[in-house]
């Protein structure tokens, strides 16, 4: 049996808009096992992004507990959350993933500036090779295609060897062929042991995951194993 990397219990997130309280997440439970590839789906307003922000420690839940890699991270200070984001979480965003005017290698190295892991910088060339960009490591971000940009973002997410990779619509700006390439890359990485939580609204993208979670109105409406 494999341990849980993520354990979310009774997670609530309430936003105050004027006099009204809006619950983006209404008591959500979710476990993600080590090495699992989970896709989160749902219509807009279902709480996908809020869930992503809470899992990524960019935001704090109003209520509920969050265990990340065996550590309670529900109520941490801004600084501690930054340190855990650096060490335990790798982000792949839909857009604006890279620093402008900066080389592939420097972009991948970005998290190492803010971390204590001295070995991280030595992994960079191997990881750039893994995502298939070793011949482009000196290229600047504005010289890269959309697919290549996402590869750099994946490499950056891997460099600190985090417990979990959070990918928020990573193929949102790509055409079908490029999307497939990126999803295959994520699948490869997952096969090598990385835990991935992917947010998407495309069934074809979600199909790469081991498990698909459907969110509606801030609660999990259904879970299904992918074919």
């Amino acid at each position: 049996m494999s341990e849980n990397v993520i354990e979310l219990k009774g997670i609530q997130k309430v936003y105050k808009t004027g006099d009204e309280d809006t619950a983006a997440l209404a008591g959500l439970d979710l476990n993600v096992r080590r090495g699992e590839f989970v896709a989160v789906m749902g219509p807009s307003g279902s709480g996908k992004s809020t869930l992503m922000n809470i899992m990524g420690l960019l935001d704090r839940p109003t209520a509920g507990s969050y265990m990340l890699a065996g550590q309670d991270v529900s109520r941490l200070s801004v600084g501690k959350r930054a340190a855990i984001r650096n060490k335990e979480i790798g982000f792949v965003f839909q857009q604006f993933n890279l620093l402008p005017r900066t080389t592939v290698r420097e972009n991948v190295l970005l998290p190492t500036i803010y971390g204590k892991d001295k070995q991280a910088a030595q992994r960079v060339d191997r990881i750039i090779d893994e995502v298939g960009l070793s011949d482009r490591s000196k290229y600047r971000s504005n010289q890269l295609s959309g697919g290549q940009i996402q590869r750099v973002a994946i490499a950056r997410a891997l460099v600190m060897e985090p417990s979990i990779i959070l990918a928020d619509e990573p193929t949102g700006n790509l055409d079908t062929k490029k999307s497939q390439e990126i999803m295959n890359l994520l699948k490869d990485i997952n096969a090598k042991g990385a835990t991935i939580v992917l947010i998407t609204h495309e069934e074809s993208v979600a199909a790469y995951a081991d498990r698909v979670i459907r969110l509606i109105d801030g609660v999990i409406a259904g879970t299904e194993a992918a074919s």
């Binding site: 930054a82 650096n86 970005l110 998290p111 803010y114």
Partner: peptide, 10 residues
């Protein structure tokens, strides 16, 4: 935002 996401502190 990106720098903060990857762990830059205040």
């Amino acid at each position: 935002g990106l720098r903060k996401a990857v762990g830059a502190k205040t």
